[in-house]
Design a protein around this nucleic acid. Structure first.
Length: 905
RNA sequence: GCACGGGUAGCUCAGUGGUAGAGCGGCUCGUUUACACCGAGUUGGUCGGGGGUUCGAAUCCCUCCCUGUGCACCA
């Protein structure tokens, strides 16, 4: 311990707030976060999954970013040049909606009232004011991000990448514009990609309607639908060509109820004979499957819904202008009034909802931009061949399935906030170009179209496409567009691409991960990362997803205030199984805090023992280490290798558990208690010095191991105990080489001896507790070695007495008198002589129970061994093990029986 | 419907063929100078049900039930 710090004594309990703030500042000032692309060390990088600028920190972020921080800190300790890159994405719909709402509530204006330019100014204003919130919150968690490299998807350099990629893919013929059925969000007023639609089961009604036959008035065809409000857009009725019920109908006509009009009956294989009535109303404008039928049969398309989900059908004034769900009821009423409603039944079906606005989407025919994905084969092969590994592995299958069935990506959004599509139409040809069913790429050569990152030189003659690109069309470039400009092989890119690990949620496997892999191959020729770790989904204690509306989502900043960032990190990590859902319980975070406090106090205990002058002067102390010291040092070495293996398997919860068990049980409960005697002033100086040195070895090696999980407290203690000579723990390499100098056999023997002592002490405490003597320090015990145990030495007896809280443990060779309660321990028969207090009956019961347990084990073992098939078929070492076990139990049986006999007299 | 997870103590979870575990909770003691955010002791499980393979199954196979996730979706 250095003198400079020994004066600043540790407080009685760990107080995280000040420590955390201080260390974040210190790390920042010392440049610990910076990834240096010119360094000679091997690069290790992670790009953060960019949170939305509108976002605020929730527990999912805490888990995700703590994992990344652990990986980054561990990589630094292992000597890598680490860059963990922060940033945010512009979140088109979410951000625009938010600012629109604010505009409406403050000025009553819509974005159209103030115009595109002015509105975008407002969004930027909002972004500058609120966009940094989540990034600042990550600092509170202690995230060791390379803050100077923070990126935003609408940064100038980044936007250039987005434009460049669009133009490049257009040139390659992968991007096209056309009129197609898309998912339309009537609230956000934009098209969505298939991935942004979430199917949800909905309770609704199945209406069965009657469509009158034209050729046979008074005769009706029954048709089932869940959406009567779209019947005005019916252009046909379809039946299956093989359906005998309707064979004579095919080629004929029926009347659409309103507006009343004859529509043809057609035959199409798509219709399921078994489903409903077997007759399907065909509404090409409002159903994807119907649209396909329409194409096959050359049917017209009638659109009766406005973009915002209201009926647009002046021919039916009762419904015109009515909201779609109100119109559904009204349409059913109208049918009933006309006696065309056969029945109405409860019905459950799946309805697609808009991910952001959480309202049912409308299938809608509209002009959009689509991308046929590039580098699909490379991206597929990368995961198949494990060039990119997924953890848990099972997500590989989900990925492969999606890649095999990959559909074109609708990349245009009818929004203003985002990357505007870099396409300009010749002004005098705008109407023609945009009205066409699809855009002919030849228009570029003809000078009618300008597709480039730079606007045309004569902007007055051109009109730019009004749409912006899907936000994910920018995020998929994140692993390289953050490190370089278009066309530049920057040193940072050379150093940090490909990134090493990606940590994200499986919910954005398609949105982001798969697309990044494709973009990585297409633009860098290589995978963007080597390992993908999919995090758990955090649920509440009842298993429900966390959501704002349920109010079951605790604010991480409150948790940090209550338990400290380290407590939150550790508590959460310890219960987060790999890829399984986590049931969040604040109790677990409390345990994280308790662990921090335990660590703090163990170090405080060390600090109170004072400086180890002796050890500093002559590190090689003459005294041989006790079994306790050999044992704890060997366990420390085991911890080191166990963690190494667990890190390579990304078993974060196991790592936390091992750190916890080692420190709390092995080090505090066992080791420190066993050596407390050596720290008394009365203890021999060399022994005291050696024990202190051992404690220092353990702490100085344990703090680095724990550091990635609990960065602040370990850093603070590292400094307070004077381990670092002023260098932050964060920048200190992990110690190498074993802490324990004993051979493997010596270590194993020490472990066994130490365990026997701990167990014997526990037996002594149990005897005391049974006689309400737990607090009595004057009890004396007798320890009689049995046939298989060797007599304990003096120092073992002293330590046993210390651990048991006894006046003494006295060795004996003769069985104790019949009145003494006793237990069989690994060190022999342990008796607690009492004067007239013994409950003979209780002792008989206790020993009887133990004997019963022993006998059942004997029965089990001898049963196995007497089975011919076991002895002949089980492996020799298993049989041998069983024999030994039987012998051990039999010896115990002899001992305990004898002990029981003592009470029978 | 197809595919993939999970079901182990009251709770949260470890445990992938060889003696069922941890923490929390419950109960009983206790402030002996690191820690009551603590210590000691104790309680608690036919490992979802059934069948099979095996000398031996929480672990492997089949089947059913419950639960979660991804994909598809019939109007």
């Amino acid at each position: 311990m250095s003198e400079t710090n020994s004066s600043s004594a540790l407080s009685k309990a760990y107080e995280p707030a000040a420590v955390e703030a201080r260390w974040f500042l210190r790390w920042s000032e010392e440049g610990c976060f910076r990834g240096d692309e010119t360094s000679a060390r091997e690069g290790y990088s992670i790009v953060i999954p960019p949170p939305n600028v509108t976002g605020v920190l929730h527990l999912g972020h805490v888990l995700n970013n703590t994992l990344q921080d652990i990986l980054a800190r561990r990589a630094r300790q292992k000597g890598f040049e680490v860059c963990w890159l922060p940033g945010t994405d512009h979140a088109g719909i979410a951000t625009q909606t938010r600012v629109e709402r604010e505009l409406k509530s403050t000025t009553g204006q819509s974005r159209h009232d103030i115009g595109r330019e002015a509105f975008l100014d407002k969004v930027w204003e909002w972004k500058d004011k609120h966009g940094g919130i989540i990034i600042d919150q990550l600092k509170r968690l202690g995230c060791s991000l390379d803050w100077e490299r923070e990126r935003f998807t609408l940064d100038t350099d980044y936007s250039e990448w987005v434009g460049h990629v669009f133009c490049d893919l257009f040139r390659k013929g992968l991007i096209h514009r056309g009129r197609r059925m898309v998912n339309w969000c009537p609230v956000s007023l934009t098209a969505l990609s298939d991935e942004e639609v979430i199917m949800k089961p909905q309770r609704g009604k199945m209406y069965t309607m009657r469509y009158e036959r034209v050729d046979q008035p008074g005769e009706f065809v029954l048709i089932s639908t869940t959406r009567p409000e779209t019947l005005m857009a019916d252009v046909a009725v379809a039946v299956h060509p093989e359906d005998p019920r309707y064979r004579d109908l095919i080629g004929g006509h029926v009347y659409r109820p309103f507006p009343r009009e004859a529509i043809p009956v057609i035959a199409d294989e798509h219709v399921e004979i078994e489903f409903g009535t077997g007759a399907l109303k065909v509404t090409p404008a409002h159903d994807k499957a119907d649209f396909e039928i329409g194409l096959r049969h050359n049917l017209p398309v009638i659109d009766v819904l406005s973009p915002d989900g209201h009926i647009n059908c002046p021919a039916v004034p009762e419904l015109h202008g009515i909201e779609r769900f109100a119109a559904r009821k009204r349409a059913a009423e109208l049918l009933a009034e006309k006696d065309l409603l056969e029945k109405e039944e409860d019905y459950e079906n799946n309805v697609g909802f808009s991910e952001r606005a959480d309202v049912p989407v409308e299938p809608r025919l509209s002009m959009q931009w689509f991308l046929r994905y590039p580098s699909v084969e490379s991206a597929k092969a990368a995961v198949e061949s494990n060039e990119i590994t997924f953890r848990p592995e099972r997500w590989r299958k989900t990925y492969a399935h999606w890649m095999d069935n990959i559909q074109d990506w609708c990349i245009s959004r009818q929004l203003w906030w985002g990357h505007r599509i870099p396409v300009w139409y010749r002004k005098d040809q705008y109407e023609n170009l945009t009205a066409a069913e699809s855009l002919d790429p030849a228009a570029v050569a003809q000078g009618l179209l300008h597709v480039a990152t730079e606007p045309p030189a004569d902007p007055e003659n051109w009109v730019q496409d009004p749409d912006v690109l899907d936000t994910w069309f920018s995020s998929w470039l994140w692993p390289f567009a953050t490190f370089s400009k278009v066309g530049e092989r920057s040193p940072a890119l050379e150093k940090f691409y490909p990134t090493a690990d990606l940590v994200t949620g499986p919910d954005i496997l398609f949105f982001w991960v798969a697309r990044m892999i494709m973009a990585g191959y297409e633009y860098e020729g290589r995978a963007p990362f080597r390992h993908v770790y999919f995090t758990s989904i955090i649920r509440d204690i009842k298993g429900r997803k966390m959501s704002k509306s349920l109010g079951n989502s605790p604010d991480p900043l409150d948790l940090i205030a209550k338990y400290g960032a380290d407590g939150l990190r550790f508590g959460l990590l310890r219960i987060a199984p790999s890829g399984q859902d986590v049931r969040f319980d604040e109790k677990q975070i409390e345990e994280g805090r308790n662990f921090a406090n335990k660590l703090w106090n163990a170090c405080r205990f060390r600090q109170m023992a004072g400086e180890n002058a002796n050890a500093t002067d002559s590190p090689a102390t003459p005294d041989a280490p006790s079994v306790f010291e050999t044992d704890i040092l060997a366990k420390l070495d085991t911890l080191h290798t166990t963690l190494e293996a667990a890190y390579s398997e990304y078993q974060f919860n196991h790592i936390a558990q091992h750190l916890y068990d080692f420190f709390w049980r092995d080090f505090c409960d066992h080791f420190l208690e066993a050596v407390k005697g050596a720290l008394r002033d009365s203890a021999p100086a060399p022994r005291r010095a050696r024990v202190l040195a051992t404690i220092d070895t353990v702490l100085s090696r344990f703090l680095p191991l724990l550091h990635p999980y609990m960065p602040h407290i370990t850093e603070e203690l590292w400094e307070k105990l004077g381990f670092g000579d002023g260098t932050p723990l964060m920048s200190t390499a992990l110690p190498t080489g074993p802490a324990c100098s004993a051979t493997r056999d010596q270590a194993a023997a020490a472990a066994q001896t130490a365990a026997a002592i701990y167990e014997t002490a526990s037996a002594a405490r149990r005897l005391k507790a049974d006689y309400q003597l737990a607090q009595n320090r004057n009890v004396r015990f007798l320890l009689r070695p049995t046939d298989s145990t060797t007599p304990p030495d003096e120092s073992t007896l002293t330590t046993l007495a210390l651990l048991a809280g006894a006046a003494a443990i006295e060795p004996t060779t003769t069985p104790p008198d019949s009145q003494a309660p006793r237990l069989l321990t690994p060190l022999g028969e342990l008796a607690m002589p009492l004067e007239g207090l013994v409950d003979i009956e209780a002792e008989r019961t206790r020993l009887g129970k133990e004997l019963a347990k022993i006998e059942s084990e004997i029965k089990k073992a001898s049963g196995k061994l007497s089975s011919e098939s076991f002895v002949s078929r089980a492996p020799e070492h298993v049989v041998e093990q069983e024999r030994q076990r039987l012998a051990e139990w039999q010896e115990k049986q002899r001992e305990v029986s004898a002990m029981l006999t003592a009470f029978s007299g």
